[in-house]
Amino acid sequence: MAPPPYIESDPRYDIFHDGHYQYAFNQSRPLMRYVYQIDRDLIWEDLVKKLTQA
């Protein structure tokens, strides 16, 4: 688990020359789970099943 990144200030004005925003981290923020791998086929199958049962 890790603290979530956030954009340090208004992104409309802080775009770097390479087109990326400046992200910052604050250790006091709530932690988030980081996903390294996901079975997208299983997720889509579950989604379609739930939508068709509605």
Rank of each mutant, 00 (worst) to 15 (best):
residue 35 V to A: 03
residue 19 G to N: 13
residue 48 V to M: 08
residue 12 R to T: 06
residue 37 Q to P: 00
residue 30 P to V: 03
residue 32 M to D: 09
residue 21 Y to G: 03
residue 13 Y to F: 15
residue 3 P to D: 02
residue 6 Y to W: 05
residue 24 A to G: 08
residue 53 Q to E: 03
residue 40 R to N: 12
residue 52 T to F: 06
residue 16 F to L: 15
residue 34 Y to T: 14
residue 16 F to K: 06
residue 4 P to M: 01
residue 29 R to T: 10
residue 13 Y to E: 10
residue 14 D to T: 12
residue 12 R to E: 14
residue 25 F to I: 13
residue 17 H to I: 05
residue 42 L to V: 15
residue 11 P to A: 00
residue 16 F to D: 12
residue 12 R to V: 03
residue 26 N to G: 00
residue 48 V to D: 06
residue 19 G to M: 01
residue 36 Y to M: 12
residue 23 Y to Q: 08
residue 15 I to D: 00
residue 42 L to S: 15
residue 50 K to T: 02
residue 7 I to T: 13
residue 45 E to R: 10
residue 10 D to Y: 06
residue 4 P to D: 01
residue 21 Y to R: 13
residue 24 A to E: 05
residue 24 A to I: 09
residue 23 Y to W: 12
residue 21 Y to L: 11
residue 4 P to C: 00
residue 30 P to R: 05
residue 27 Q to T: 08
residue 34 Y to M: 09
residue 21 Y to T: 07
residue 18 D to K: 05
residue 40 R to T: 09
residue 29 R to Y: 15
residue 43 I to N: 05
residue 4 P to V: 02
residue 49 K to R: 11
residue 35 V to K: 00
residue 52 T to K: 05
residue 46 D to Q: 13
residue 22 Q to K: 12
residue 22 Q to M: 13
residue 21 Y to E: 12
residue 4 P to R: 04
residue 36 Y to R: 12
residue 24 A to Y: 06
residue 39 D to H: 08
residue 53 Q to I: 05
residue 9 S to L: 04
residue 27 Q to K: 15
residue 50 K to C: 02
residue 43 I to P: 02
residue 20 H to V: 05
residue 14 D to K: 07
residue 5 P to W: 02
residue 31 L to S: 05
residue 39 D to Q: 14
residue 5 P to M: 03
residue 39 D to W: 07
residue 18 D to I: 06
residue 4 P to I: 02
residue 50 K to I: 01
residue 15 I to L: 15
residue 6 Y to G: 01
residue 24 A to Q: 14
residue 34 Y to C: 10
residue 13 Y to P: 01
residue 28 S to V: 06
residue 1 M to A: 07
residue 45 E to V: 10
residue 12 R to C: 00
residue 11 P to R: 13
residue 28 S to T: 15
residue 31 L to D: 04
residue 18 D to P: 01
residue 31 L to P: 03
residue 17 H to L: 09
residue 39 D to T: 04
residue 8 E to T: 14
residue 33 R to M: 10
residue 43 I to F: 00
residue 2 A to N: 11
residue 14 D to C: 11
residue 28 S to R: 00
residue 44 W to P: 00
residue 17 H to Y: 07
residue 36 Y to Q: 14
residue 23 Y to I: 08
residue 21 Y to S: 09
residue 8 E to S: 09
residue 2 A to L: 09
residue 2 A to R: 13
residue 16 F to G: 12
residue 53 Q to F: 01
residue 54 A to N: 04
residue 44 W to S: 09
residue 53 Q to C: 02
residue 27 Q to L: 11
residue 7 I to E: 12
residue 6 Y to I: 00
residue 49 K to A: 10
residue 30 P to S: 12
residue 53 Q to G: 00
residue 34 Y to S: 12
residue 22 Q to P: 02
residue 14 D to F: 13
residue 19 G to E: 01
residue 20 H to R: 10
residue 23 Y to M: 11
residue 32 M to T: 14
